[in-house]
């Protein structure tokens, strides 16, 4: 469902930031996910693996931290080469 479009949003953010930050490979993505964000983390991880195939984030680790009481979904940082 919409986890796929959110995963595409994460990839877009990674690719946009690559231009300004000068990296060519991402090895990990750190994400904060609010408990009320209505996003299923397993589904998001699965979709992330699918959409990053063939991209600079292929094989990257997706590390998700829960945010109790929040409805935000925030990309915190990247681990890059």
């Amino acid at each position: 469902m919409h986890e796929l479009s959110l995963a595409e949003g994460v990839l877009q953010l990674i690719e946009d930031t690559a231009r300004t930050q000068g990296y060519s490979r991402v090895t990990a993505v750190f994400l904060e996910l609010g408990e009320h964000a209505a996003v299923e983390r397993e589904s998001l991880s699965f979709c992330f693996d699918v959409v990053t195939r063939g991209s600079m984030a292929e094989g990257a680790r997706l590390e998700i931290t829960d945010l109790p009481g929040s409805s935000e979904m925030r990309v915190k940082e990247l681990e890059v080469d």
Binding site: G9, T17, Q21, K76, E77, L78, V80
Partner: peptide, 14 residues
């Protein structure tokens, strides 16, 4: 430690 890049962006923000 690998290089870290700060993003701090809300995905639903758009």
């Amino acid at each position: 430690r690998a290089r870290r890049v700060s993003i701090e962006q809300n995905l639903l923000a758009k």
